[in-house]
């Protein structure tokens, strides 16, 4: 474990708790893409299947359990409890356009042709594009609530910090995983224009609004 990965994990935890809190407090999931949340739920479930079989550390097990629980709770709030506030007219990104190619790629490009490894690879690839419906929804509505932009900033920062973690681990531990690194770079690149808007607008107290 290194500081970059620890801060990254905490940023990730902050992001998902922030979103859950926003929906719970405002009792509304307006501006939140349920499709992205479903895909994040899929990401955690397919990646953390070894939750009960492969113990690494208390920290690892606890965080995996929290991520899965919060993802399920968020999906529940969006599609059941506060379903009336779910903005399905703007959450129109076709998930199958992401899940099918990602599933195919996981079969073709992986470290090991075993069920667990292919599911882990699928999870890594899916996570890199899972935010697209959310970014697409913001581009359609032209704006995002400030708390939602904080959520996106924390979520985008987590994988950017993981990239620094991978550089660190390459130089100090001689460790690298090309699949995770390439997918992590794609994921972080997808946030770039949002990061720009966040820094230039939200940091100056303005609402995040895309140029119409």
């Amino acid at each position: 474990m290194n500081i970059f990965r620890l801060v990254g994990d905490l940023s990730h935890l902050l992001a998902i708790l922030l979103l859950l809190w926003k929906i719970w407090k405002t009792r509304s999931c307006a501006g939140v893409s349920g499709k992205s949340q479903i895909m994040f739920g899929l990401v955690y479930i397919t990646r953390y299947l070894d939750l009960f079989t492969n113990f690494i550390s208390i920290y690892n097990t606890t965080m995996k359990a929290i991520f899965i629980a919060v993802a399920i709770a968020t999906i529940y709030l969006i599609y059941f409890k506060f379903k009336a506030t779910y903005d399905s007219n703007h959450d129109t990104f076709r998930m199958e356009f992401l899940i099918v190619p990602v599933g195919g790629l996981a079969f073709l490009v992986n470290h090991d042709f075993t069920a667990l490894e292919i599911l882990w690879t699928f999870s890594i690839y899916l996570e890199s594009v899972a935010i697209l419906p959310q970014l697409f929804m913001i581009s359609k509505t032209g704006e995002a609530e400030t708390i939602t932009s904080h959520y996106l900033f924390a979520l985008g920062s987590y994988r950017a910090l993981y990239i620094v973690n991978w550089v660190y681990r390459y130089y100090f531990e001689g460790f690298f995983d090309l699949i995770a690194i390439v997918a992590g770079c794609v994921q972080t690149i997808l946030y770039c224009d949002f990061f720009y808007l966040y820094v230039t607008k939200v940091m100056h107290g303005k609402k995040l609004s895309l140029p119409a």
Partner: peptide, 10 residues
């Protein structure tokens, strides 16, 4: 292969 201990990452 180095990817062995990716699995210690979240």
């Amino acid at each position: 292969k180095y990817s062995e201990d990716t699995k210690d990452e979240l």
